[in-house]
């Protein structure tokens, strides 16, 4: 695949610039997080002191704990419900309305879902807190899990389910011994993505967290820090968050690919 003609070469140079555009800003933050002065203007030596400062920041630690609770709970709920939904939708060609319903949480603007849920919760006079964020995050996570798991069914040979039932296995045994092993990598990949989405989600959590700082999540804390001004601590936070997200997404992609092979 040599760059045979000039057009091809231009395109490749352009693609290289696009990757630079996408990853350059992230790389800048990572480099700066290790800069002693913490400022972008001058490199004053390698240091991990900003990471040390983070570890001592109780507000951040607290926010991370809240985010982990929300992410684990909403991932658990949405992985189960989303997988069941995917199985139901793949059993027969789903109605277009059902397709639209599952696509909706993924395309509706965050701010709309955020205010809709806030209005709904306050109409019910529900106390807000981590539990309401979990309920809200499960909405878009169910849609994402369902969509990812459904792609696994594309290569699924339905006759093995029929064979299992013909051989006398019950519905649950068939699911556990036949369907689940085939779709498992897709389910795990979906769960990893759901976890990543939940731990990074800001606006919906911001609206459904309720007043008070007890249910501040990690992105809400980051938002407060950014609003306060550019501080080197944020660079360290950014590096850790990016690292965790990329590892999770990478694992998820690996799992997805294995099945295709």
């Amino acid at each position: 695949m040599s760059a045979a003609n000039p057009t091809q070469r231009w395109l490749q140079a352009h693609l290289g610039l696009v990757y630079l555009f996408l990853y350059g800003p992230i790389i800048v933050l990572i480099v700066l997080s290790f800069n002693r002065a913490g400022l972008p203007t001058a490199w004053t030596g390698f240091s991990t002191e900003w990471y040390g400062k983070l570890a001592a920041n109780t507000k951040i630690i607290n926010a991370v704990q809240n985010s982990l609770i929300v992410a684990f709970a909403s991932t658990a709920i949405s992985t189960v419900i989303g997988t069941l939904l995917a199985m139901g939708m793949e059993a027969r060609r789903p109605h277009p309305a059902l397709e639209a319903l599952v696509a909706a949480p993924m395309i509706i603007p965050d701010i709309v879902l955020a205010i809709a849920l806030l209005s709904f919760f306050s109409l019910l006079k529900m106390t807000l807190g981590l539990h309401s964020i979990i309920l809200a995050h499960a909405v878009f996570n169910i849609a994402f899990v369902c969509t990812v798991v459904r792609t696994r069914f594309k290569h699924f040979d339905r006759s093995i389910v029929e064979a299992s039932i013909d051989l006398g296995a019950g519905a649950f045994t068939t699911f556990r011994r036949v369907t689940l092993p085939v779709i498992a990598p897709g389910v795990i990949a979906a769960a990893l993505l759901a976890f990543t989405l939940s731990i990074d989600e800001f606006i919906i959590a911001y609206f459904t967290a309720g007043p008070g700082s007890s249910s501040t999540t990690f992105p809400m804390q980051i938002y407060a820090m950014i609003r306060f001004g550019v501080t080197p601590e944020i660079n360290a936070v950014a590096t850790i968050v990016m690292g965790v997200s990329f590892v999770l997404v990478f694992l998820s992609q690996r799992l997805n690919r294995e099945v295709e092979a």
């Binding site: 069941l84 939904l85 199985m87 059993a91 709309v112 879902l113 809709a116 709904f120 499960a138 909405v139």
Partner: peptide, 24 residues
């Protein structure tokens, strides 16, 4: 069986997506 699989997801999305958006 299929309805049983769809029910939890439909219930969740109805209660926390359709109704809140209708409310808006």
């Amino acid at each position: 069986n299929r309805l049983l699989l769809l029910a939890p997801g439909l219930a969740w999305l109805t209660a926390l997506l359709i109704i809140p958006c209708g409310l808006i």
